[in-house]
């Protein structure tokens, strides 16, 4: 298989639970070695989409491919090519970390010798070596997540699905996990991760699809999505408040859309992109105005989500019944 063919494809996926359409004709494709972020609020259909792609749940219609294998017709081949870490950690609490990894490794078909070697590597890599022989019951939330991820990786799957991998983690554990995921991607793993956190998608994903009420409402790179939400601005922090007036005069030559924040010694100018920023920087430095900072500021993904849906991602819409996917199961 050539490296240009997609590692994951969703083709018109539909899932209905009774009358409720949880996933409505979702299609996307994830190039090998890249990261797709599936972004959306609770109950948007993210988990259901992942469950269909990972053969855990049969699509009502449509299909998909993972590592070139059809999810409906060749579920076993799909299971051999992917790892899945679900929304809640599925580690076996009564087994130790080491036993958890070895057990699943044996299920995946590794020999006893292989599973010992790979298991020890994974424990080391996920900083669990010290806790390896304690039962998972005693692990913290972050450790459970790491163990869960390590277990999913024991068969070295080329495609990895992560359903809200950092939900419920403290900020420190979250950034640690991000680093681990970046490492996996460097090693060539294709990643699909769902998240409610815009920052997470922004940090990790090459491409993002935004899902709301079962449908894809936007897709693109993080930058493209931000551009959709509105244009960027150039922000100038001047060092001396006395320079604000002259700086504003210079900036007004570019556009009328200038906003001055006297308290913060900060001026924001509507801009279209990098060229504007360079021109402004040039003009400011020629006028010998001292600046602390000068940069291009794009709208955040929060702005994007608000722009697309009329509500923010964390703001769970009440008519949408969060956890409906769970409840119907």
């Amino acid at each position: 298989m050539s490296s240009s063919s997609p590692a994951i494809e969703a083709i018109d996926l539909v899932k209905k639970f009774g009358d409720h359409v949880a996933v409505d004709r979702v299609s996307f494709s994830v190039p090998t070695g890249s990261v797709l972020g599936v972004l959306g609020p609770n109950g948007a259909g993210k988990t259901t989409t992942v469950r269909m792609l990972t053969t855990m749940s049969r699509p009502t219609s449509g299909t998909g491919r993972v590592a070139g294998h059809d999810i409906v017709k060749e579920p076993d081949a799909v299971r051999r090519s992917m790892g899945l870490t679900g929304q809640s950690a599925t580690v076996d609490e009564l087994l130790t970390g080491r036993e958890n990894i070895r057990l699943i490794g044996r299920f995946a078909g590794l020999s006893g010798k292989e599973v010992r070697r790979i298991g020890d590597d994974l424990l080391e890599r996920f900083s669990l070596t010290e806790a390896a022989d304690r039962t998972a019951k005693t692990y913290s939330g972050g450790m459970r997540r790491r163990l869960d991820l390590a277990v999913s990786l024991v068969a070295t799957p080329p495609v990895l699905f992560l359903d809200e991998p950092t939900t419920g983690l403290d900020p420190r554990s979250r950034t640690d996990l991000w680093d681990v995921l970046r490492g996996l991607v460097r090693d060539g793993t294709t990643l699909l991760l769902t998240t409610q956190y815009l920052e997470e998608a922004d940090q990790l994903a090459d491409n993002i699809v935004v899902i709301d009420r079962g449908q894809i409402i936007a897709e693109g790179t993080p930058t493209q999505l931000k551009d959709q939400a509105g244009r960027a601005s150039v922000v100038v922090h001047v060092t001396h408040a006395s320079d604000l007036g002259s700086a504003e005069g210079i900036l007004r030559q570019f556009t009328d859309e200038v906003h001055v924040d006297h308290g913060a010694r900060r001026i924001a100018v509507r801009a279209t992109g990098l060229q504007d920023m360079l021109a402004i920087g040039d003009a400011i430095s020629r006028a010998a105005i001292e600046v602390d900072d000068l940069g291009l500021q794009r709208p955040s993904l929060d702005d994007v989500f608000l722009h697309l849906t009329g509500h923010t991602a964390e703001d769970v819409s009440t008519d949408d019944q969060p956890e409906l996917e769970e409840a119907v199961r």
Binding site: M1, H69, A108, I118, T156, G188
Partner: peptide, 22 residues
């Protein structure tokens, strides 16, 4: 880390080489 990487590239895209238990 390096070992994992090696396993990865050896196995290629799909791990059909890995035979699940009976």
């Amino acid at each position: 880390m390096t070992t994992l990487h090696a396993v990865h590239s050896d196995a290629g895209f799909a791990r059909e080489t890995l035979k699940p238990p009976s």
